[in-house]
Amino acid sequence: MKDSDRPAVLFIGLSWEERCFLGLKVDHKYYNRTTKVVLLYNEHSSDRDAANRDKIIQYCKKRNIIVQEILLKYNDSIFNWKTIEKAIFGIREELGRAVLDITTLPRELAWTLLYNIGKYTPSVQYIYHSPAKYTDEWVCKEPGAPRLLFRHSGISELNKPTALIILTGFDEIRTKKLVEYYEPKFLALGIQTGSKYSNNVRNSLSKHLDVVKGEVEHTHFSIDAYSKEHGLGQLNRIIKQLRGYNIVACSHGPKLTLVSLYRSHQSNPQMALCYVPSRLYNINYSDGIGETFRGVIEF
């Protein structure tokens, strides 16, 4: 039986973005035997997300798809971890059919889901819908303090210095914040290749280097989130070069790098995964829906 013909349990992060609901329609067209949608949403942005929530619920109701909602709290990683852990345990029998739509899921939540789903099933499918375009304005601001992901905080060795790997995005202030917070001995910047979404301008190496000038020894490498492996090869190469360090790694930029970083962590559990929350996201964050990417993560 083709994957797409199997009954599916679809995990979605609720968002106001168009591609949240449009993505569900694409997902359902592909996984045409979806039986349940697990909708993760955040009380902090519930007003903004309300329209999409209603659309999703109505859409599912018409098609006899059960909607299970998981209410989370903004910036409360302890509450969110425990809530997701409990929710996943409750549906552990259904996880053989799990499909994770990471499009509008915050990275920390996506990783938390992956860990918990991985306890009960050997693999999970993932989907990502890129937008038609991003806003020309700011995308997110007011970054919070970086934090290590529970259970993925690595295995540090005493006497080793810290190296920071940042897969960069449009916001160089997050790069600055990470460097200031961890004060690494060495910084490796993973820069997305290409000019899609004006990446070559908005996510240029020079922008990120400017904010850390004189503060830390650094290198950079190219990464292509939209390639088949989402840059896993480049990532593993840099990790190998940084064997003499305790590594902390963070994914900003194209969402698909959360997949490559997670896979990298699976084979390099000594590396810590890190997340920097943002308090504000631009209401005009993105428009429409673009290309869809699919894959499988093995546990």
Binding site: F150, T162, Y182, N246
Partner: peptide, 11 residues
Amino acid sequence: TPLFHKKEYLL
């Protein structure tokens, strides 16, 4: 350091 940033015990 990453060691002191580990917060699993908060769970």
